[in-house]
């Protein structure tokens, strides 16, 4: 550990790594649920690629988390052996897949935030964080290109697709605010120059959302209400079902390898 790493308390940095890794783990799992069920083969493969990218990023973030914690936990043990209350992902990423439009809308709202976050993290004072961000950023740039393109196509598509995309946006909107809310961990990260103040990402995110929704002929809800809790481990009932699916094998057969 260098001097920079030592200047921020280890518990906050661990918490931060979990937040990044749990977002990608839970969203990656959600997206992987489409595998074999997508409307067309090409989309099926594209979604599986996105899911795999996110799981790969999870390995890096949770791997870093385990290293920071220094208690011998690995990316695998953090992913498979924590209970719901120990997860730190945003509520947005645990939302059910719904129809294809809801899945794409969730992806777009997250991608737009994710890319800006990773760009900011590339300038992190912690070189390990900057390195992961640089690698993940290239993948996420493509995720955003793809999800924004599909949101525009479906929003500005048929009456049916427009209706579904607007319903998805209205449904997910109250879950977007949590991305920009800061707590003591975020303040410590910003103070140490490791991560940006979450609120600082909001103006550009809003501009991206506004531009894409404009092209998609969708109306951005003006409600400022936001559900929150995921970042401190207070989750919706959906996370428990995700973990039951995700963790079953390691829980039932501890240490199983294949």
């Amino acid at each position: 550990m260098g001097a920079l790493e030592a200047s921020v308390d280890r518990a906050s940095l661990f918490e931060f790594a979990l937040r990044m890794g749990d977002n990608t783990l839970i969203l990656g799992h959600r997206v992987s649920e489409w595998c074999g069920h997508s409307p067309v083969l090409e989309e099926d493969i594209a979604l599986a690629n996105t899911a795999l990218d996110l799981i790969g990023q999870t390995q890096m973030w949770l791997g870093l988390g385990g290293e920071i914690e220094g208690k011998g936990r690995t990316a695998d043990s953090l992913a498979y052996l924590r209970d719901a209350a120990a997860f730190r992902n945003l509520l947005l990423v645990e939302r059910p897949n719904g129809d294809f439009g809801q899945t794409l809308m969730r992806q777009f709202l997250f991608d737009a935030w994710h890319l800006d976050m990773l760009k900011a993290l590339e300038r992190s004072a912690d070189s390990r964080v900057a390195e992961i961000a640089a690698k993940a950023g290239r993948e996420v740039a493509y995720h955003l290109e793809r999800s924004s393109d599909l949101v525009i196509r479906l929003g500005d598509g048929t009456d049916e697709s427009h209706r579904r995309m607007q319903a998805a946006l209205d449904d997910l909107w109250p879950y977007t605010g949590e991305m920009f809310l800061a707590d003591a961990v975020d303040a410590a990260m910003a103070e140490a120059g490791i991560a940006p103040d979450p609120a600082s990402l909001k103006p550009h995110w809003q501009a991206v959302i506004g531009e894409v929704m404009g092209e998609a002929t969708l109306t951005v809800p003006d409600s400022g209400y936001s559900h929150k809790g995921g970042k401190r481990g207070v989750h919706t009932e959906h996370l428990g079902y995700i973990l039951a699916d995700l963790q079953f094998l390691q829980r039932a057969y501890p240490g199983a390898k294949w």
Partner: peptide, 20 residues
């Protein structure tokens, strides 16, 4: 070969299907 509604999406789909 693959299916896509237009050339732009054909390129994206090709990226995902054939350059993994």
């Amino acid at each position: 070969s693959l299916h896509a509604p237009d050339a732009e999406m054909a390129i994206r789909n090709a990226r995902d299907v054939y350059t993994r």
